[in-house]
Amino acid sequence: MLEHWRRWRAARFAARHPFPTETWAEARARLPLLSALSDADAEHLGQRAWCFVHAKRLSLHPALANTPFDEPARLALAAQACLLTLGWSDAEHHEAFANVHEILILPEAFERRVEEMDEAGVMHQYADERAGETSFQGPVVVAYPDLMESGGFSGFNVLIHELAHKLDMGNSLDVDGFPPLPRDIAANEWHRVFTAVWDDLQARLARSEDTPIDDYAASHPGECFAVCCEYFFSAPDQLDEAYPALYALLSRYFQQDPLTRLPPREEASTRG
Rank of each mutant, 00 (worst) to 15 (best):
M1Y: 10
W5Y: 11
F13K: 04
R16V: 03
L31W: 14
S35P: 07
L37C: 08
D39H: 11
V53I: 11
L60P: 00
A65T: 12
E71N: 03
A76W: 02
L84Y: 03
T85W: 06
W88M: 09
H94D: 13
A96Y: 06
H101E: 10
H101F: 12
I103F: 08
L106T: 00
E108F: 04
R112N: 07
V114E: 07
G121T: 08
H124E: 12
D128V: 10
A143G: 01
M148H: 12
M148Y: 08
S150K: 00
G151N: 05
I160K: 06
I160R: 09
H161M: 00
E162Y: 06
L163N: 02
L163R: 01
L173P: 03
L173V: 09
P179M: 01
P179S: 06
L181Y: 04
D184H: 09
A187Y: 07
R192D: 07
T195K: 15
D200S: 15
L201M: 14
D210L: 13
D210M: 12
D214W: 12
A218K: 00
S219T: 12
S219P: 03
G222V: 00
C224P: 01
F225R: 00
E241V: 14
A242L: 03
A242N: 02
Y247T: 00
L249C: 03
S251F: 07
F254K: 02
Q255V: 14
D257V: 02
P258C: 05
L259V: 04
T260Y: 05
T260A: 11
E266F: 14
